[in-house]
């Protein structure tokens, strides 16, 4: 048996889809027995959702008021303790997982692999490096391995009929007080979540202002799509940081990705090239984004957007 421990990511009482994707990666390990660890102030609902993921054998729930906002410095020592006996400890390649897992790896004195995109065996994995310009195959020789899963590379584990048992756990680790949550500011939206949306429309420097960038939202709503942005658009203040796609932002794999006014630097392309269909609209016919686009349209971004709104018509559903 390969004992695999996956840490759950969640918010507002909901299990993140990235957890279902990490579970899917875990299930590709040969002979995997997959447990999910939930850290929360009140985690019963999240634990129940994790328990229903197909292939999960056990959910370990750590409830503590100090986990109301996830802090790596507080979760890491407890996760490291729960990881005793696990050969693989997996998190997500989200800001949550990327913050947490290296701290766990160091506490366990285990090597970490970041952004695993394919499982070849219990000891052999593939991951992108150099902004996706190269894929490296690595072999690990260690009793324990910590990893973050490149969630865009794995389909979410299905929600099944049965439910795995949920065990409450009280790890003994002493939690530090040196790190304190102050606040979280987030742009509330009814739009689909960027990392799990089936459709994403995104904009770049060509929008020229935050006001113009809003024009993208109309099409997004008509398509039921999430909105993304290039680094240039975020740096220029047209869009908030949580919309940034690419090597240093979010990595997505939607059914449809439509890039408006994005030139397509390699750092951006690495975040979107797993999309099923890529559409590029740009006035520069030489823009590198066209090299990866399935459908390219050379033209004025605003004119094309207006025309698309008209053609797409009423919102789906």
């Amino acid at each position: 048996m390969t004992q695999v421990l996956v840490v759950a990511e969640h918010g507002q009482g909901k299990l993140s889809q990235s957890t279902a994707r990490a579970v899917s990666c875990a299930l590709q390990l040969p002979d995997a027995a997959v447990s999910v660890a939930v850290f929360a102030a009140e985690g019963a609902a999240v634990a129940a959702q994790a328990a229903r993921l197909t292939g999960v054998q056990r959910v370990v729930l750590v409830e503590d008021a100090r986990h109301a906002h996830p802090l790596a410095a507080l979760i890491a020592p407890q996760l490291a303790e729960l990881a005793a006996g696990a050969s693989h400890v997996l998190g997500q390649s989200s800001t949550f997982g990327r913050d947490l897992m290296p701290r766990v790896a160091a506490l366990l004195d285990a090597p970490q692999l970041s952004d695993i995109a394919a499982v070849e065996s219990a000891k052999r994995f593939r991951r992108p490096i150099y902004a996706g310009n190269a894929i490296v195959t690595v072999e690990v020789d260690a009793p324990q391995l910590v990893a973050t899963v490149r969630v865009a590379s794995f389909q979410p584990a299905a929600v099944g009929e049965g439910a795995a048992p949920i065990e409450a756990a009280k790890p003994l680790a002493v939690l530090p007080t040196h790190t304190r949550f102050v606040s979280l500011s987030t742009s509330q939206s009814d739009r689909p979540e960027l990392q799990s949306a089936a459709r994403v429309v995104s904009g770049g420097r060509a929008f020229a202002s935050a006001e113009n960038f809003q024009k993208l939202y109309k099409l997004a709503d008509l398509l039921g799509a999430a909105v993304g942005a290039s680094r240039a658009a975020v740096d220029a203040g047209f869009a908030p940081n949580e919309l940034q796609l690419g090597q240093t932002g979010k990595i997505i794999a939607p059914e449809l990705y439509m890039a408006f006014g994005i030139s397509g630097a390699i750092q951006h392309l690495t975040g979107i090239k797993d999309a099923r269909t890529i559409v590029a609209v740009n006035k520069d016919s030489e823009a590198p984004i066209f090299e990866v686009a399935d459908i390219g349209l050379v033209g004025d971004v605003f004119a094309v957007l207006a025309e698309l709104e008209r053609l797409v018509g009423t919102p789906p559903g």
Partner: peptide, 29 residues
């Protein structure tokens, strides 16, 4: 403990098509 055994270029996407306007784009989608 971690050893790189092979490096490979990323897989290439098949070459796409160009469309002339928004109507053709919607039709293609």
């Amino acid at each position: 403990r971690v050893r790189a055994v092979n490096y490979a270029p990323p897989s290439q996407r098949p070459k796409g098509v160009r469309v002339a306007d928004a109507a053709e784009l919607v039709a293609a989608l």
